[in-house]
């Protein structure tokens, strides 16, 4: 399996993504510059976090319109595994591959801390291994998930909620919803389940020396999507 780690001007979690995929998940991974118009030879895509194009206009707005994204959308539509973390989630929402949008945290502060995440729909390649709430790092200023009422109802009814912010015991308290996201939404899948976008950073916790390897429970979804699980 070979995964493309897309680099944009301002990506800054690209190395974390590449090394977690290569060293910890044990798959091939290569950087791909955003101006590439072909992803031939790749089986999946990781869109890393960062502040692409300085977050000008809106987070992910410019990155979502770059040359490589046409190919990412094609691969997403063809059922290949595509994962976006943090800015990568914002970019996937900007392209329309995932619904909704991410706005400034309700507390108006950049949040860099550890939160708890629970899997909502466990019937997806990305969530089925997350049996208990896991502690996971976040680092974002615009992570408040929003969508129109109709869209939110559709997201919930179709089981697109992959992860919600929660307490260590899984309880959905207001305090646990650190950025004020609607319905505590921290991550979504597309309807087919091959695309995951989330604000937290599983690629930052893929070996014990980093404090936890629980991120592998999520990132190993690349294998499961390709295996058709």
């Amino acid at each position: 399996m070979k995964i493309a780690v897309v680099q944009f001007p301002g990506s800054n979690c690209d190395q974390d993504a590449l090394y977690s995929l290569r060293d910890d998940l044990g798959v091939q991974a290569e950087y791909v510059w955003h101006q590439e118009s072909s992803l031939a030879g790749f089986d999946g895509v990781f869109i890393p976090g960062g502040f692409t194009y300085g977050d000008y206009l809106r987070c992910g707005a410019m990155a979502a319109r770059s040359a490589v994204m046409g190919e990412v959308i094609r691969m997403a539509n063809d059922g290949h595994p595509v994962m976006g973390a943090c800015n990568g989630f914002q970019i996937l929402c900007e392209t329309g591959v995932l619904p909704g949008a991410l706005l400034k945290n309700s507390g108006e502060r950049f949040l860099c801390e550890s939160v708890y995440l629970k899997a909502e729909n466990r019937n997806t390649a990305w969530t089925e291994q997350v049996k208990e709430p896991i502690a996971i790092p976040i680092a974002h200023n615009e992570g408040r998930f929003v969508a129109s009422d109709d869209e939110l109802a559709r997201i919930e009814n179709e089981g697109l909620v992959a992860f919600r912010y929660c307490e260590a015991n899984g309880e959905l308290t207001e305090k646990a919803n650190v950025n004020g996201s609607l319905n505590h939404i921290a991550g979504l899948v597309n309807k087919r389940g091959n695309v995951l976008g989330l604000m937290p950073h599983p690629e930052r916790m893929t070996k014990k020396i980093l404090g936890s390897d629980a991120g592998l429970l999520i990132i190993s979804g690349f294998h499961r999507v390709l295996a058709g699980v």
Partner: peptide, 9 residues
């Protein structure tokens, strides 16, 4: 519609 505004928000 293509870039300057995001109709979702």
């Amino acid at each position: 519609e293509k870039l300057l505004a995001n109709p979702v928000i």
